[in-house]
C-alpha cells in the first residue's frame, strides 16, 4: 500500500474514460488515434501504481512494452492515414467504410 493509492487509480480511470469518450465522439482519425494513446496512458498509470504498491517490477515492464507497441502502432497507423488521405482526400472515419459490408 502506498500513500494516495486511490487518487492514482482515480486519475488512471479518468484518463481511460476520457480517451474512450473521445474515440467514440470524434471522427478525425488522428484525434481518435491520440485518444487511444490517452487510454493507454491511463492503463499505464494503474500498472505502475500497483507495481509500486506491491514492490514488484512486472507492471513497469508491462508499461515499457506498451510504449514499444504504441511506437510501432504510431508508425504503421500514420502510414495507413497517409494512404487513406491519398485515396479519399480526407481522414474522416465516417467516410472510410472500406471494410463495411
Amino acid at each position: 500500500m502506498i500513500e494516495n493509492q486511490s487518487i492514482y487509480l482515480a486519475l488512471s480511470v479518468a484518463l481511460f474514460i476520457i480517451g474512450a469518450a473521445g474515440a467514440i465522439c470524434r471522427r478525425n482519425a488522428i484525434v481518435v488515434f491520440m485518444c487511444i494513446e490517452i487510454m493507454l496512458a491511463g492503463v499505464s498509470i494503474a500498472f505502475v501504481t500497483f507495481s509500486t504498491a506491491n514492490h514488484s517490477l512486472d507492471g513497469i515492464f508491462m508499461v515499457i512494452f506498451v510504449m514499444a507497441v504504441a511506437a510501432a502502432e504510431a508508425a504503421v497507423g500514420l502510414a495507413i492515414f497517409l494512404l487513406m488521405y491519398r485515396k479519399q482526400g480526407s481522414i474522416d472515419l465516417d467516410k472510410f467504410n472500406l471494410l463495411k459490408w
Binding site: M1, Q5, F50, A53, N54, H55, S56, L57, D58
Partner: peptide, 8 residues
C-alpha cells in the same frame, strides 16, 4: 487493493 509483496 494490494496483494502479496514482490521481490523488489
Amino acid at each position: 487493493l494490494t496483494a502479496i509483496q514482490g521481490p523488489v
